[in-house]
Deep mutational scan, measured.
Amino acid sequence: HNLTITQGKLFFHYNPKLCLSEIHKMEEVSGTKGRQERNDIALKTNGDQASCENELLKFSYIRTSFDKILLRWEPYWPPDFRDLLGFMLFYKEAPYQNVTEFDGQDACGSNSWTVVDIDPPLRSNDPKSQNHPGWLMRGLKPWTQYAIFVKTLVTFSDERRTYGAKSDIIYVQTDATNPSVPLDPISVSNSSSQIILKWKPPSDPNGNITHYLVFWERQAEDSELFELDYCLKGLKLPSRTWSPPFESEDSQKHNQSEYEDSAGECCSCPKTDSQILKELEESSFRKTFEDYLHNVVFVPRKTSSGTGAEDPRPSRKRRSLGDVGNVTVAVPTVAAFPNTSSTSVPTSPEEHRPFEKVVNKESLVISGLRHFTGYRIELQACNQDTPEERCSVAAYVSARTMPEAKADDIVGPVTHEIFENNVVHLMWQEPKEPNGLIVLYEVSYRRYGDEELHLCVSRKHFALERGCRLRGLSPGNYSVRIRATSLAGNGSWTEPTYFYVTDYLDVPSNIA
């Protein structure tokens, strides 16, 4: 807008934040220059609390790290170098490059900038070799853009010569660093050979998330399962459950009422301010606690030095998902009996873990797994792929695949051998790939016309006998059925096997 004052003059007093240069501009645009008398524009009460600059400061050096910015700028000295009290560095987070010096300023003089007072450097006698002032900004957020400017702080001049310097606002972004852990990993099994893994992005990506790394490792069953005799009275049979499938998407929606109208769909109840505040506090606490764990609990591995020492970490090797089922080394339970199943799973520490690289999504279907087997899954978020990966501390989750139908069934015939004193040795093959492992066998036998009897055969007993022995049988026709019990439950009964026990007292003698 054009402003013209045809008559009258300007009068400025007691404006401590208004620089004289701005008042002189007002004289020019209003056409009143030359009308004012000496005392109409006070030299001592206008701009006496402001830094009124008329020179431009330029930054000469900028260096960044993930949490620091090192700045240096060209030296500046007023005509009387004693008038320079120091520099004021202003900075704040700036997602967009549209910041002005006066953003967030209120009537009390406060604003949204963080201000650092910096002492002037030592003055050199040689004007050509003056030290460049600077400042190291610490405690910054990774991968965050900051708006920065600097200006001088000078003393009051009796001659009211307006001098000083100020830089333009520059924008500097800190470097990326390792992201925080992925949030809320959930693993479920939808079949006997697959596990579905879902997660949420890290709360602090500290860069642009480029991919996720998912490692999985087959877990050995508890050692007590191999040692305890679950045929003993009072000892509860062990059981394991597989990871249940995901709930429906509708039930997972946030901010939804727990109660549904019987007449149909209901609208979600909005969260109160107290609920939102509580969630923010919980989120802040979780982030602080995660940072504490990362800094205190997890110790970084030592990389190899120039002395030739090897990095103890196993090298990563990509495998196809079809090879995942046989990740671990199978060892027989008892070496003397080769027909026992290889369900003991000690994992070799030198073995390469299978892994998958996930790009542009937060889910993965891990296939080719062994049925009813526990897996430990390790999830890392990465925001750099080359020249070397920059990934987060791992988040861990466990899951067990679903049982395989008929995996616990005894394959092959049940054979028998009759000894003296009416002892019958029953023999059968253990299931080759049971659900988890076989903890015991149930032997059901009966003599024709009598009630059915049951015998429990422990895992250890089966390994020693290759089956079991029935003792003290009365003469007669017998039928026997056997079924295995694994961590997933009972298998199917075998087809009945028949044998006849004679009275050993009636056996004919070869003595003449």
Rank of each mutant, 00 (worst) to 15 (best):
S203C: 15
S203Q: 09
S203R: 07
N206T: 13
G207Q: 01
N208G: 05
I209T: 03
T210I: 09
H211E: 15
F215I: 08
Q219T: 02
E221M: 13
E221V: 04
S223W: 05
S223D: 15
F226Y: 09
F226R: 11
E227F: 13
E227K: 07
L228Y: 15
L228M: 06
D229A: 14
D229G: 15
D229P: 12
K233D: 04
K233Y: 07
K236E: 12
K236T: 07
L237D: 05
T241W: 03
W242T: 13
W242K: 09
S243T: 09
S243Q: 06
Q252D: 04
H254P: 05
Q256V: 08
Q256D: 11
S257P: 08
E258M: 03
Y259P: 10
E260S: 08
D261R: 07
S262P: 12
S262W: 09
S262D: 13
A263P: 14
G264I: 10
E265L: 09
E265D: 06
E265F: 10
C266T: 14
C266P: 11
S268Y: 04
C269D: 02
D273M: 07
S274M: 14
Q275C: 07
L277R: 07
K278F: 10
L280A: 15
E281C: 04
S283V: 10
R286N: 03
K287W: 15
T288K: 10
Y292T: 09
N295Y: 02
V296M: 13
V296S: 09
V297R: 05
V297F: 12
V297D: 08
F298D: 08
F298L: 13
P300S: 07
R301C: 07
R301P: 05
K302N: 13
T303Y: 06
S304Q: 05
S304E: 06
S305P: 10
T307D: 15
D311T: 11
P312L: 15
K317P: 06
S320Q: 09
L321R: 08
G322C: 10
G322D: 11
V324C: 01
N326R: 13
V327W: 08
P332S: 04
P332K: 02
P332W: 15
V334W: 12
V334C: 04
A335D: 09
A335E: 12
A335H: 08
A336C: 13
A336V: 09
F337H: 07
T340E: 12
T340P: 13
S341N: 08
V345K: 13
V345F: 05
V345Q: 10
S348P: 08
P349C: 15
P349Q: 05
E351K: 14
R353Y: 09
E356P: 14
E356S: 15
K357E: 08
N360C: 14
E362N: 06
E362T: 06
S363V: 05
I366Q: 02
G368S: 11
L369Q: 13
H371V: 08
F372H: 10
F372S: 10
T373D: 03
G374C: 14
Y375G: 00
R376H: 14
A381S: 13
D385I: 08
D385F: 12
T386A: 15
E389Q: 13
A395E: 12
Y396T: 08
Y396W: 09
V397S: 08
V397L: 06
S398D: 13
S398N: 08
S398G: 05
S398P: 07
A399V: 09
R400E: 12
R400F: 10
T401E: 00
K406V: 14
K406F: 14
A407K: 12
D408N: 14
G412F: 10
V414K: 01
T415N: 04
T415Y: 13
T415M: 15
H416G: 06
E417R: 09
I418L: 11
I418H: 04
E420F: 02
N422Q: 13
N422M: 05
V423W: 11
H425W: 05
H425D: 06
M427Q: 09
W428F: 09
E430M: 02
P431E: 01
K432N: 07
E433P: 03
P434T: 03
L437V: 05
I438K: 01
Y441T: 02
S444Y: 13
Y445H: 03
Y445A: 14
R447V: 08
E451K: 03
E452H: 15
L453M: 07
C456G: 01
S458H: 02
S458Q: 03
S458W: 03
R459F: 13
R459Y: 09
A463Y: 05
A463E: 07
L464N: 09
E465W: 15
C468W: 07
C468M: 12
L470R: 01
L473S: 01
G476S: 01
S479T: 11
V480I: 14
A484G: 13
L487K: 04
L487Q: 11
A488L: 06
G489F: 08
N490A: 06
S492I: 13
T494K: 04
E495K: 11
P496F: 14
T497C: 15
F499E: 00
Y500L: 09
Y500H: 10
V501Q: 03
T502W: 05
T502S: 12
T502R: 10
D503T: 07
Y504F: 03
Y504M: 03
L505Q: 05
L505M: 05
D506M: 11
V507L: 01
V507M: 12
S509V: 09
S509R: 09
